[in-house]
Design a binder for these strands. Structure first.
Lengths: 328, 328
DNA sequence: TGCGGTAGTGTAAACGATTACAATTTTCAT
DNA sequence: ATGAAAATTGTAATCGTTTACACTACCGCA
């Protein structure tokens, strides 16, 4: 490994001078600068980021901690964050917690120890920001899931309104016996449940069912199968994320029910397949690009000005009405 | 930040002793050990990974560089790699190149500078391992896409055989005018094309068409639309990855053609939606879990024994026959 | 002429760990 | 009791940077 010492020797200057040339933050005689730059080029020198990070106690990396990397919502966020971070010369380290609080803590610690400049993450349900060691030390932006704290930046969807709109869409299309499937791993599911119930109440309807379950395809499938096999089965299934949507949709199919005539299926997040299945699925599309970009911007703001008062940005989802809820 | 010095002071020993207690690699008097461990616990001390990494010139992290994080194939690999790495106490940093050679080089440099223990990655087409600075220095395992080098570990699919099997499946089910859509960003597309053509030749058939295109949904859609609108349109479309499959499937739908009666659509990778659409899609399933795990194991082997002679592991895909190719 | 200011550079101390080497104490066979 | 070997611990160098501080040279102005 060629180090700054080698460059200094080759250029006949001190390591301090080399460092200053590279950092461009001090006056240097043009002739010296040229000698140094030539040496850098000749030796193909690249500064050791580890050493720099140890010395200055920070780095040009940000962490992105998500709960499930297989969820298209999060990969879309990942892309947006990466693009936005790149523009500022930062790199992104993605970590996957699998909804596991232990893994979450492990990765947050790791990122902290790595001196990342900040972290964007979607906390598990159990996450308590105040109990953490790194609380005050590492800039944070929370996405997708609210946490109970008013001193942290967040980028969220207006889940209640979105769920309300989606539910009303069902009601307006003539569905009356609505069942809800909500993820139990986050506040998102709870908020969407609130919007769901509020819309029902607004129209003087009672929910046919409402279940909080693990946000996995299999769980969604089993629960929906159960609901659909009852004599007084629901005529619409509202799901709070794309994993549950997939499960519910499959259940409708396997129950030999016609979508949308016998039962409607709607959900969140516009995935590749949601538009490809027949009938295509009505969903609330989240502005993933904007969520990721906004979160990154908030993070950079906080990095620059740690004492800035916290912001919560609430974005709106947009309804994409498709065949799966067209009416009976 | 509490450092090893604070712990040493609190326990009344030297920093060397603290380090030794934590590394568990030297004899320590039980009583001293207890004092040190108590101090560690009291101060809530965690060793600084940056400093350690600087000193020992390596770290317990591996890099995973993939070309498209939105491709479910790669996220599945990501999960497998992470699980396998975790078992060895390693963390995984995921990076996304977006098929961009510049980003690829940038991330490989970054990972190198970060002292990662090694890298697993799927190279872009242009990647030339020999021109790279880090060539000999950082252990590598290449996945999914072959590169021309016999001194590097690789984990690949037997693409020719898999494509051959998938093509024969079409032929056996009565399809005769087969068109192929292949990704142009990697060797994978080329190899699958070879298997496709070989199977046709084995059955004395000529390809109806064969296109190398950018592996994106939109490209697949446009190309397939074109093919299907011709008077002498193909009766089956073979696609070499799931992005193209999605595009082709949508094109068949939009052309008002019946799948599988008018046209069959088959592809690679078993995605969530492939089984949910109607008809569900016949695919070659890649053993993603095994690919990720094997790659990780090879990487650890090479880390331990850098001079070990390189291995190429070739895994088999398995055909999942579904409705989209059931025959006319 | 003398003096404050600035440009340009070097010296050396950090950052927080690991580890070769040395020093001290114990153990134990004779 | 004694010396060699083993066990236990400490000292200090090191990894590759950045940067506070010190120093020299030169400039411009009174």
């Amino acid at each position: 490994m060629t180090s700054i010492k080698d460059v200094a020797k080759a250029a006949g200057v001190s390591t301090a001078t080399v460092s200053r040339v590279l950092a461009k933050n001090a006056p240097i005689k043009p002739e010296t600068r040229d000698r140094v730059l030539k040496a850098v080029a000749d030796l193909n020198y690249r500064p050791n980021l580890i050493a720099r990070s140890l010395r200055v106690q920070k780095s040009a990396k940000i962490g992105l901690v998500v709960s499930d990397i297989r969820n298209p919502f999060f990969t879309a966020i990942g892309r947006a964050v990466e693009d936005a971070a790149h523009e500022q010369g930062y790199s992104v380290l993605m970590c996957n917690t699998d909804e596991d609080p232990d893994k979450e803590e492990m990765y947050l610690n790791l990122l902290y120890d790595e001196n990342v400049a900040g972290v964007i993450f979607s906390p598990t349900h159990q996450f308590d920001i105040h109990s953490q060691t790194y609380n005050q030390k590492m800039p944070f932006v929370v996405i997708d899931r609210a946490i109970e704290s008013n001193d942290v930046d967040m980028v969220l969807l207006d889940n209640v309104a979105a769920a309300h709109e989606l539910t009303e869409h069902l009601i307006n299309n003539g569905y009356k016996k609505l069942a809800g499937l909500f993820g139990d791993a986050s506040t998102t599911g709870q908020e969407r449940s609130r919007g769901f119930h509020k819309a029902l109440k607004d129209h003087q309807l009672n929910p046919a069912a409402a279940h909080f379950i693990s946000p996995r395809i299999q769980q969604g499938y089993e629960t929906a199968m159960n609901l659909l096999s009852q004599p007084n089965r629901p005529d619409a299934i509202f799901t709070s994320n794309s994993m549950l949507t997939a499960g519910a949709y499959k259940a409708a199919r396997d129950s030999k029910l016609n979508v949308p005539k016998d039962v409607a299926v709607v959900g969140f997040d516009d995935t590749t397949w949601g538009a490809l299945v027949d009938p295509p699925i009505t969903v609330i599309e989240q502005p993933t690009e904007e969520i990721g970009r906004t979160a990154t911007e908030l993070l950079f703001q906080r990095i620059q000005e740690p004492s800035r008062s916290p912001k919560t940005v609430i974005l709106k989802g947009s309804l994409i009405a498709r065949g799966s809820s067209k009416g009976k």
